[in-house]
């Protein structure tokens, strides 16, 4: 009865940790409240700002801070900022940061233009999902951006088809000539290796590795913060040991995070 044993130990471990967290939670909260005299002190400069119970407009509004009242900004999560107001931790929508003043009565400065940050990015990581010659395909990749126009990328992909699995590793170089557009097309070339593992139960076939060279055309769409949506079409030529080369066609859709 492996099932029973596993489940029991899992449940016990969870129960124990649950109790531990619950008991530490209340003590921790008081300690945190005392320690958190830091944060950024700001004053409300509009008629009022709403303060929510949680980081989202779906959470109820607990109270409002009116003009001249002081808030302490603590952390951000998503597009919300946690504030300390009259000893209570509440959440303020990021758009309201425009209505706050610093101690010296200057307007509180919001985060810089994120589209500019996107154009000046150095590193980019992507996850994409799609189709490789009729097989389900997904890839993870990491890239270095030399300039807003020139970038490089190392990608590792896995295609799972009915007849065979493929693992594809490629290094690519891309050009994005219209880097200042929010929807920006790009193209590039790359090369690497394809490892093919045929899925046959009856006939024993060997795994094989072949060279691949390919060209890609795609489009990047800057979403918000440090997220970019991305769609691409890639055409590759696989140099096999047979007399003829194979072709590969990849469609993929995904997102990138930049740093």
């Amino acid at each position: 009865m492996k099932f029973g044993k596993n489940t029991a130990s899992c449940a016990l471990a969870l129960l124990l940790s649950f109790c531990a967290v619950l008991s530490s939670a209340s003590a921790e909260e008081t300690a945190q409240a005392q320690a958190e005299t830091q944060g950024i002190r700001v004053w409300v400069d509009s008629a009022y700002v709403d303060l929510h119970m949680g980081p989202g407009s779906g959470y109820p509004i607990k109270t409002s801070a009116i003009k001249g009242e002081q808030l302490q900004l603590l952390i951000t999560r998503g597009n919300w900022v946690q504030v300390l107001f009259r000893g209570e931790k509440l959440w303020l929508d990021e758009v309201n940061l425009a209505f706050l003043l610093n101690a010296d009565k200057t307007p509180f400065q919001q985060a810089g233009d994120s589209f500019d940050q996107y154009r000046q990015r150095d590193w980019e990581a992507s996850f994409m999902y799609g189709d490789f010659n009729g097989a389900s395909y997904y890839q993870v990749s990491a890239g270095y951006v030399f300039s807003p126009i020139v970038s490089s990328e190392l990608s590792v992909g896995q295609a799972s088809g009915l007849q065979a699995d493929h693992q594809i590793v490629e290094l690519s170089f891309y050009l994005s000539p219209f880097d200042h557009w929010q929807i920006s097309p790009y193209f590039g070339v790359g090369g690497g290796m394809v490892r093919t593992n045929p899925k046959t139960i009856l006939v024993q076939t060997e795994d094989r590795s072949d060279l691949i060279t390919s060209a890609e055309i795609g489009v990047k769409y800057y979403l918000s913060r440090n997220f970019v949506a991305r769609a691409a079409y890639r055409h590759g030529v696989i140099s096999t040991s047979r007399n003829e080369n194979d072709e590969s066609i990849t469609w993929k859709l995904g997102f990138s995070v930049f740093f």
Partner: peptide
């Protein structure tokens, strides 16, 4: 200058489950 960038971003989450 005191800016929003000075605030700690706690948008990552790590979870374990059984």
């Amino acid at each position: 200058p005191v800016t929003q960038d000075k605030l700690d971003d706690e948008s990552f989450v790590f979870a374990v489950r059984g």
